[in-house]
């Protein structure tokens, strides 16, 4: 079962649009569709849920007279997604979860949020030393455990 890649990308761009400051593209433009397709390919039930959900979304668009989701105005796209969210909540919540997984693990997004694109290892991060006099009040209370 193959997902409609073009439709999927359009939907993803509506779910996570480009950031208002222009520093990050929307999820579809970023290529998050590949993460969704990979997940769908690994589990037949998931693939079926997403394929049918996307088809149902396209049907909603066609019933409004458009030639499909891609032909809708931006406002109508959002309305169609609200409709499918009501009609097929499992589809949209699953797609959202996969979209968030793909988007927020993507290197450009992580780099934009952290200010750099380097992985956590091998450089790591510095943590300043602590003033453990914060514990004075705890020490003053005495033992908490039960003798037995």
């Amino acid at each position: 079962m193959t997902l409609n890649t073009q439709l999927l990308a359009m939907v993803l761009d509506e779910l996570i649009p480009s950031r208002p400051d222009g520093l990050l593209p929307g999820a579809g433009s970023l290529g998050v569709g590949a993460v969704v397709e990979h997940a769908a390919g690994g589990t037949p039930e998931l693939g079926q849920l997403l394929t049918q959900g996307l088809a149902a979304l396209d049907d909603i668009a066609r019933r409004s007279g458009a030639e499909g989701f891609g032909a809708l105005s931006p406002t109508a796209r959002v309305a169609a997604l609200r409709d499918i969210e009501q009609a097929e909540p499992m589809f949209l919540s699953t797609l959202l979860m996969l979209a968030y997984v793909g988007y927020y693990s993507a290197e450009p997004v992580v780099a934009a949020l952290k200010g750099n694109a380097r992985p956590p290892h091998p450089l790591g991060y510095d943590l300043e030393s602590d003033d453990l006099s914060l514990l004075d009040a705890v020490r003053a209370r005495g033992k908490l455990y039960r003798e037995c």
Binding site: I16, L81, V101, Y104
Partner: peptide, 22 residues
């Protein structure tokens, strides 16, 4: 971290899709 934070906030209704997402 970003991904896990998004996944925690999603079912809590704290991270909507669409224009208000970012």
């Amino acid at each position: 971290h970003p991904m896990f934070g998004a996944l925690i906030a999603l079912p809590q209704g704290r991270l909507p899709w669409g224009a208000a997402h970012h």
